[in-house]
Computed example of a mutant assay.
Amino acid sequence: MPQVTPEYLAQRRASILDAAAHCFAAKGFHATSMPDICSQAGMSAGGVYRYFASKEELIEELADTVMVPVLHVLRAALDANPVPQPAEVIDLIHDTLLVDSPPLPSAALMLQVWCEVVRNPRVHESQRRYMSELLDVLSGFTRRWAQLDDASARAAASALVAMSMGTFLMQNVLEADLKKTSTRKLIEALNPIVRSG
Rank of each mutant, 00 (worst) to 15 (best):
L17M: 10
N81P: 00
R122K: 11
V68T: 13
L134N: 06
P6F: 03
G28M: 09
W114H: 07
P86T: 10
E125W: 06
G42S: 04
P69Y: 09
F24C: 02
N172W: 06
P121E: 11
L104N: 09
L111F: 12
Y51W: 06
L169E: 05
W114R: 10
M170G: 03
R50M: 06
V89I: 14
D95W: 06
A26V: 01
I59E: 13
L178Q: 11
K55L: 08
A77N: 07
A156D: 08
E188C: 07
I16Y: 00
R144F: 02
D177F: 02
L9N: 11
R195G: 00
D64F: 06
I187L: 15
T167I: 10
L138W: 01
F24D: 07
D36L: 08
N191K: 15
M1N: 11
V118N: 11
A153I: 00
Q85W: 09
V89S: 04
A53L: 04
L169I: 11
W114Y: 13
D95L: 03
P2E: 10
V4N: 04
Q40P: 00
I193W: 09
Y130E: 11
S15N: 12
L98H: 10
M1F: 05
I16P: 05
S15W: 00
P6G: 08
Y49I: 03
D79Q: 15
M165S: 09
K179F: 08
I93S: 02
L104S: 11
V73H: 12
L92C: 12
I37W: 00
N81I: 09
S164Y: 01
P2K: 14
V173K: 08
